[in-house]
């Protein structure tokens, strides 16, 4: 059973930016907002060397990791070739300006 938990509003996330959700238990989650106000969430860890993806530059539906420049697809966590790997994705949903995550 997944629980949809409201974490913040769309306005809390800057466009082309992200916020970090700190949890009492479990890893930090990065919630991203694209230029077109789509919202995505990933565990805040790059599959390469664990860089905080939340601190990366958001472009299109991707984020570039701040540590070594890997490009990660926001919608599935897939790493752009020729690098290989996948970031852990968290299902997200935007309803009436409120962001929900499936936790």
């Amino acid at each position: 059973m997944t629980d949809w938990v409201s974490v913040c509003t769309l306005a809390d996330i800057p466009p082309q930016g992200s916020r970090v959700i700190k949890r009492a238990h479990g890893e930090d989650i990065a919630v991203f907002r694209t230029l077109n106000d789509e919202v995505f969430a990933l565990f805040d860890r790059c599959p390469h060397k664990g860089g905080p993806l939340s601190q990366g530059l958001v472009h299109g539906k991707s984020v570039t990791c701040p540590l070594h420049g890997w490009v990660i697809a926001l919608d599935g966590g897939q790493v752009q070739a020729p690098d290989q790997g996948c970031a852990n994705k968290v299902l997200s949903r935007l309803e009436a300006g409120v962001v929900y995550l499936a936790l």
Binding site: Q16, G50, G51, P52, Q55, G56, L57, P66, L67
Partner: peptide
Amino acid sequence: ARSRLVNERVHANIQKDG
């Protein structure tokens, strides 16, 4: 600011552990 890489956006230098 959203077109600045992390260091120039947060005005500090990111380290390997974040």
